[in-house]
């Protein structure tokens, strides 16, 4: 474990907690893409299948349990408890356009052609693009609540910090996973446009408004 990865995991944790706080305090899921949350849930389910078979450390297990349960809880809150506030008309990104290419790519490009490895690879590819429905929804509504933009900033930062972690592990531990690194770079690049808006607007105290 290194500082980049620890801070990255804490950013990821903060993002998920921020999202749950926003939903619970505002009693609303307005502005949130249920599809992105479904995709994140799928990412955790397909990646943490080894939760019970492969023990890494107490930290690793606790975080996996938290990520799994919180993502499933978020989907539940969006599609059942606060369904009335879910803005389905603006959450129209076609998930199959992400699921099918990620599944095909995971079958073709992986480290080992075994079910667990292909599912892990699928989860890595899917995580890289899972935020697209949410970013697409913001581009359609033209704005995002401030706490939602904090959520996105924390979520985007987590994988950016993981890239630093991979650089560190490459130079100091001679560990390197090209699939995770390439997907992580794609994932972080997708946030760049949002990062620009966040830093120039939200940090100036303005609401996140996309140029019409």
């Amino acid at each position: 474990m290194n500082a980049f990865r620890l801070v990255g995991d804490l950013c990821h944790l903060a993002a998920i907690v921020l999202l749950l706080l926003k939903i619970w305090k505002s009693r609303s899921v307005a502005g949130l893409s249920g599809k992105s949350q479904i995709l994140f849930g799928l990412v955790f389910v397909t990646r943490y299948l080894d939760l019970v078979t492969n023990f890494v450390s107490p930290y690793n297990t606790i975080m996996k349990v938290f990520f799994l349960s919180s993502s499933i809880a978020t989907v539940y809150l969006i599609y059942t408890k606060f369904k009335a506030t879910y803005d389905g008309n603006h959450d129209t990104f076609r998930m199959e356009f992400l699921l099918i290419p990620c599944a095909l790519l995971a079958i073709v490009v992986n480290h080992e052609f075994s079910p667990m490895e292909i599912l892990w690879t699928f989860s890595i590819y899917l995580e890289a693009v899972a935020i697209l429905p949410q970013l697409f929804m913001i581009s359609k509504t033209g704005e995002a609540e401030t706490i939602t933009s904090h959520y996105l900033f924390a979520l985007g930062s987590y994988r950016g910090l993981y890239i630093m972690n991979w650089l560190y592990r490459y130079y100091y531990e001679n560990n390197f996973d090209v699939i995770a690194v390439v997907a992580g770079i794609v994932q972080t690049v997708l946030y760049c446009d949002f990062f620009y808006l966040y830093i120039t607007k939200v940090l100036q105290g303005k609401k996140l408004q996309l140029p019409a």
Partner: peptide
């Protein structure tokens, strides 16, 4: 391959 060693990540 050495990539296995990053499987301790979340």
């Amino acid at each position: 391959s050495d990539c296995k060693k990053t499987k301790d990540e979340l």
